[in-house]
Every structure is written in structure tokens, then in C-alpha cells.
């Protein structure tokens, strides 16, 4: 962007000042302060207490389960997201719009219902639940249910970030590659993916943050068994309800850090795309 000239539609300096101050003030009170309070509360009893809280064996157990959930749910998400984005961006077919709505569906469903559906499907009172449990397949109140619920809530993330990028890129590059003799897979790996790397990365970051931080859906299916079905957000809730506020806030800082990293990745991707466009 070159030097800005003064436009007749530029707001007067007073208006600019007041509105900017208002926006910063609202953001500070509504979002900034709560985050600051998490960090301050986590460190209230000193760095040593903080480190003790986040290295507590139960916290480590919760972290391990959270990492397992992320390690399964995010790759599943990537496979479906890439497939869906390819089909929906590069082709036109009847029912395309309906399919996009279906992909968005988990965004509209309450997290509690996202958990409930798996209790109804696999729980002890469901059609197949008793059979599964008799054969040693525990899904509800077990890590499998937590993973399923997480896949459900994170389903749209990668597809939703990738779709606009693939749509904007059009089909000509891929068609050129195919005409030059590349196979379909070569075209995807060497032409499509390099151009959509940023969007994919942003989608994966968002899916990871949500998978690690999902609370409502996971809360329904987990059964809150410490050391077995406790993820980090559930562990935070337990600590909080036991009035271990600084412990809860200490564990919460781990997830705050993850959220900030996610936003940083998305910001870098956007900045990169803006530079490419310029």
C-alpha cells in the first residue's frame, strides 16, 4: 500500500480516537482481562507451585490422553477435509450445496448433543452397546468415545479452511499438469497442495486447538475417570470444582498457549497470502 491521501470519507481524528479507544477498551475488559487473570492466578503461589501443578501425575495423564485424542482426530480430519475440499472445490455436481451444509452441521450442534449422540449409539442401553461391551469394546466412558466425539466436533475445520483456497485456485493449474503427463496423485502433491499449504496448516491448527480443548462433548462421553478418561479441559474442571483455583488456572495456561500458537499460525498464513497477492 502506498502513502494514504486524505479522503473526504476519512473520519475526523476525534472520532478515530474515540472509536479506537472504545474498541481497545471493550476488548481489554471482555477478552484481555480474563486471559490476564488466568496467567496471574496460575502464578499466584509462585513459579514452583505452577510447575508442580502442571507436572502433577494426574495432569500428565490428562495431557497424554489429550495428545492421543489429537493424534487420532486431527489426521482423520485432514483426510476427510482434503477429500471434501477437492471434491467440492474442483467439481460441480448435484447435491454439492447440501453436502457443504452437512459438513457445517457440527458447528450448529451443541457440544453436549455431540456427546449425547455417541452415548445413545454405543452406551449400555443402546442397540449395539451391550454386545460391544460384552466383547470388551468399551466406547462410552472410554478413550474411544472421547475420540469419536472429538472427530464429530472438529469435522468441518480442515474442509472449511481448504475449500475457499482450492476454489480460488481454480482448475487450470491441475489441468495443465495433467496435460503435461502428470498422474492425478503427482498433480495433487506437486501442484494443488503447495498452493494450499497455508490454508491446510491453518485448518490443522484450528482442528488441533479444538480437539485439545473440546469440553462439552467430551464431558458427556468421558465419565470423568481420573487417570483414564480425563482430558486436559476435564481435568481443569475437576481441579476448579475442588477449589484448587490456581491449579486449574495453571493447567489452563497450557491450553491458552495452544490457542495463541494457533492464532499466530493463522496470522502468519494470512500475512503470507496477503504478500503473495500483492
Amino acid at each position: 500500500m502506498s502513502r494514504r491521501r486524505v479522503r473526504p470519507t476519512d473520519d475526523p481524528a476525534v472520532v478515530r480516537w474515540v472509536l479506537t479507544a472504545l474498541a481497545l477498551g471493550v476488548f481489554g475488559v471482555l477478552v484481555g482481562l480474563p486471559v490476564a487473570v488466568v496467567v496471574a492466578g496460575a502464578l499466584r503461589h509462585g513459579v514452583e507451585a505452577y510447575l508442580r501443578a502442571i507436572t502433577d501425575p494426574l495432569t500428565v495423564d490428562a495431557l497424554q490422553l489429550t495428545l492421543l485424542v489429537v493424534a487420532v482426530a486431527v489426521p482423520v480430519n485432514i483426510v476427510f477435509g482434503v477429500a471434501a475440499a477437492w471434491a467440492l472445490a474442483k467439481f460441480d455436481f448435484p447435491g454439492r450445496a447440501a453436502l457443504i451444509t452437512l459438513i457445517d452441521l457440527p458447528f450448529a450442534v451443541s457440544p453436549v448433543i455431540s456427546g449425547l449422540v455417541f452415548v445413545l449409539l454405543f452406551g449400555g442401553r443402546s442397540l449395539i452397546g451391550p454386545w460391544l461391551i460384552a466383547h470388551g469394546w468399551h466406547i462410552v466412558f472410554a478413550p474411544a468415545g472421547i475420540i469419536l466425539a472429538t472427530v464429530f466436533v472438529t469435522f468441518p475445520f480442515v474442509a472449511r479452511e481448504l475449500l475457499p483456497a482450492l476454489e480460488a485456485a481454480g482448475r487450470t493449474n491441475e489441468e495443465a499438469a495433467l496435460v503435461c503427463g502428470a498422474t492425478g496423485w503427482q498433480t495433487f502433491w506437486r501442484v494443488t497442495l503447495p498452493n494450499a499449504r497455508g490454508a491446510l496448516l491453518a485448518g490443522v491448527a484450528l482442528a488441533t486447538a479444538r480437539a485439545a480443548g473440546e469440553f462439552g462433548a467430551v464431558s458427556v462421553v468421558s465419565g470423568h475417570i481420573r487417570g483414564r478418561t480425563n482430558t486436559l479441559p476435564l481435568h481443569i474442571e475437576i481441579l476448579y470444582n475442588e477449589y484448587d483455583f490456581s491449579g486449574a488456572l495453571a493447567v489452563a495456561t497450557l491450553l491458552v498457549a495452544l490457542a495463541l500458537v494457533t492464532l499466530a499460525i493463522r496470522w502468519a498464513v494470512d500475512a503470507h497470502a496477503a504478500r503473495d497477492a500483492a
Binding site: P34, V38, G213, G216, P233, I236, A252, L255, T262
Partner: peptide, 13 residues
Amino acid sequence: ALPTAVSGIALTT
């Protein structure tokens, strides 16, 4: 981006 449980505890605090 923030996990909802973290937001909830932070807002309540």
C-alpha cells in the same frame, strides 16, 4: 480459539 472450559473459568474469575 480458546477452549470453552478455560473461557468459562477465566470469565468467572
